[in-house]
Structures are given as structure tokens and as C-alpha cells.
């Protein structure tokens, strides 16, 4: 176990620790609300697992600086489009080009001409895990709400949210 592998794997271990804490809460606690909280913690640790895998060393968030993105868009403008659209937008495009040229000129002045290199040199982290987890979080809260709604109904019918008491009631004691 070298220092290098510890530095390279610590993120997984943190995630596993959090995951197991959530698992422990689900197993050991008999209160239904507490179990839902345990599942939430487990879920968040899975989000973190995915996000840590998307990170690239010295990378930045996968958002292309708008000035660079505009440059690229004009470089590739009309490549995949039909000619009709291109003609239709010639006027606006002209206007936009002026605007962008102005903007880029300002930025270039600011950064001393490094912009052209920057577009190829920026390292971006992987956007795919972000996308997957983004939707998973919102779906997760919706399903958590569903679980909590069931807990509320259980409490109304059984008068308790304790797992073992509910089992006893079900056995008819």
C-alpha cells in the first residue's frame, strides 16, 4: 500500500464509508423515517461515486467559455445545416459576427492573445456523470416523497412507525 495508491483511491473509500453508514442505518434502525433517511444517505453516496469518477486532474467544469464557444460555432457554421437556413440567417449572422468580433477583441486584449491557445488547452471534466446524477437527484427526491407518503399512511392505519410493532400488529397480536 503505497502513498500513491492511497492518494489515488481515497475518494472511493470515503464514498464506501458513507454508503455503509447509510446501509447500517437501514439495517439497524427500526423507525421507518430513519430508514428513509438511511436510504437517502446511501443514495447521495452513489451520486458522489459517479461524480468523483468524472473528475479529471487539473480539469474544470464542462462549460466552454462563451467567447470560445461562439468562435467554434462560427468556424463550423453551415457545416451540418441546409443552405436555405444559412441564407435566411445571413443578416443576423453578420450582425452577430460583428458583436462577437468586438467581444473577442476585448477578451484578447485582456488575456494578451492567449485565447486562441486556450481553446485547445482547457481540460474539461467528464460531463456524462453530471448529467446522469442530475436527473437521478430529482427523481430521488420524488421517490423519497413517495416513501414518506407511505410512511404517513402507515402511521395513520397502524398508529406507529416502528417496524417491529407493525409486524406484531400484522400478526394479529
Amino acid at each position: 500500500m503505497t502513498f500513491e495508491s492511497i492518494a489515488g483511491l481515497y475518494n472511493y473509500w470515503v464514498v464506501i464509508f458513507l454508503m455503509m453508514t447509510g446501509f447500517y442505518i437501514v439495517l439497524a434502525r427500526k423507525n421507518l423515517i430513519k430508514s428513509v433517511i438511511g436510504l437517502n444517505i446511501f443514495q447521495t453516496s452513489v451520486f458522489l461515486l459517479y461524480i468523483t469518477m468524472g473528475k479529471v486532474e487539473h480539469g474544470t467544469a464542462p462549460i466552454v467559455p462563451p467567447a470560445i464557444a461562439e468562435q467554434q460555432s462560427h468556424a463550423s457554421h453551415g457545416v451540418g445545416e441546409n443552405a436555405h437556413a444559412a441564407i435566411e440567417h445571413a443578416d443576423e449572422a453578420h450582425e452577430v459576427v460583428h458583436e462577437v468580433a468586438h467581444e473577442v477583441a476585448l477578451t484578447v486584449a485582456d488575456h494578451g492573445g492567449e485565447l486562441a491557445h486556450a481553446s485547445t488547452e482547457i481540460i474539461y471534466s467528464n460531463p456524462l456523470p453530471s448529467v446522469l446524477m442530475l436527473t437521478a437527484i430529482v427523481v430521488g427526491i420524488a421517490t423519497t416523497a413517495l416513501a414518506l407518503a407511505l410512511v404517513v399512511r402507515i402511521r395513520e392505519d397502524y398508529g406507529t412507525v416502528d417496524e417491529e410493532l407493525i409486524l406484531e400488529l400484522d400478526r394479529g397480536e
Partner: peptide, 24 residues
């Protein structure tokens, strides 16, 4: 994770998205 979709989505969106900055 970083190698598989090649070219990566960041590269592909440069060509496909007509200057949409947020790849996510």
C-alpha cells in the same frame, strides 16, 4: 470513464451545438 465515448461529448458538442457553452 474518460476514454470511452471518443470523441468525447465535449468535442462533439463543439461541432453539433452551434456554440452552446454548457455541455451538461
Amino acid at each position: 470513464v474518460q476514454v470511452y465515448p471518443d470523441p468525447s461529448f465535449v468535442k462533439r458538442s463543439e461541432a453539433d451545438m452551434h456554440g452552446l457553452p454548457n455541455v451538461v
